[in-house]
Nucleic acid binder design. Structure first.
Length: 285
DNA sequence: AAATCCACCAACCGCTTATAT
DNA sequence: CATATAAGCGGTTGGTGGATT
């Protein structure tokens, strides 16, 4: 046997909450807490609502310190950067924005941010696909909320959770020489891996890449490029101090410690993207 | 002034994971 | 261990109100 039934589906109210219902739920939870059981809560209060509905109402609207609307530029940038890194994992994104709910962020993304970033191109706009707007995450800035330990662990775990790149992507995966293992676990490098992985996965398994993925490509490639530049600087300073002979490490330089793998990923994605844009916009078959 | 369009967002739906029995 | 439900999550819907035609 399992648990008792959740609620009498035929006998619960649905739709918008009245102020009276809100007041009942809010005052009860503030005094007694949820008791760890949402299903019995409405019965205790005398609300003809499903426990699931009560939970949603509390989490998204009634609980203290909830902020609605008025997203700041910083919040916009953080949401965009996180979305590009980890996709639509709204609860994780919401955890980085105090006072914001996953539902609010999801709505905000779907109705405004997505359009702001990836407005659908008109056919005569090619060869200038949507331009990136948000900067990549700046992990060197202490003001960045992602700099706290929990957030960094969160991002690190996210990149670890991703499918192994070599199994999902036919091209070279980013890699790091053993002399640079001290850099391997920094957030920036995790970030670089994560973005590369996202790009690789985006291209995997499609004969034709869906439009929605295509619209995100310029942004993702820009972030990859920017992130690489910072990692590149770190490598330069690291190798300089350890007296390892090391030339310039620009994108086109074969002496870059993780060239050609990283460059390969970038260039293959870039090339593939250009081809797909041409097909998408009717410039080639 | 009326009709239509569009943006917004609260709430619901359905799926996956966790957990009680 | 198997089963059934709770909890949690992301996707989607539908009502509302303002803007535009």
């Amino acid at each position: 046997m399992g648990r008792a039934p959740c609620c009498d589906k035929a006998n619960v109210k649905r739709g918008p909450w009245s102020p009276e219902e809100d007041a009942k739920l809010k005052s009860y939870i503030e005094k007694n807490g949820t008791g760890g059981n949402w299903i019995t809560l409405p019965h205790k209060i005398g609300l003809k609502r499903c426990g699931k509905s009560c939970r949603l109402r509390w989490l998204n609207y009634l609980r203290p310190n909830i902020k609605h609307g008025g997203f700041t530029e910083d919040e916009d940038n953080l949401i965009c950067s996180l979305y590009i890194n980890i996709g639509s994992r709204w609860s994780i994104i919401a955890a980085q924005l105090p006072g914001r709910t996953d539902n609010d962020i999801k709505n905000y993304w779907n109705t405004r941010l997505k359009k702001k970033l990836f407005g659908r191109p008109r056919r005569n706009q090619y060869p200038h696909p949507p331009q990136p707007v948000a900067p990549p995450p700046d992990f060197s800035n202490p003001a960045n909320p992602l700099c706290d330990e929990a957030a960094q662990n969160s991002l690190t775990n996210i990149s670890i959770d991703m499918p192994p790149i070599e199994e999902k992507f036919p091209y070279d995966a980013p890699c790091f020489p053993s002399t640079l293992t001290n850099l391997k676990n920094t957030p920036l490098v995790s970030d670089f891996h994560a973005i590369s992985g996202v790009l690789a996965n985006d291209f995997q398994g499609y004969d034709e890449i869906p439009e929605d993925i295509m619209y995100q490509m310029p942004q993702k490639l820009e972030v990859l490029d920017s992130t690489f530049s910072v990692v590149d600087d770190m490598v330069n300073s690291s190798t300089t101090t350890s007296a390892v002979s090391h030339e310039s490490t620009s994108w086109g330089d074969m002496n870059c410690p993780f060239y050609p793998s990283a460059l390969s990923t970038y260039e293959v994605c870039q090339r593939k993207m250009s081809q797909e844009w041409e097909v998408l916009l009717g410039y080639s078959e």
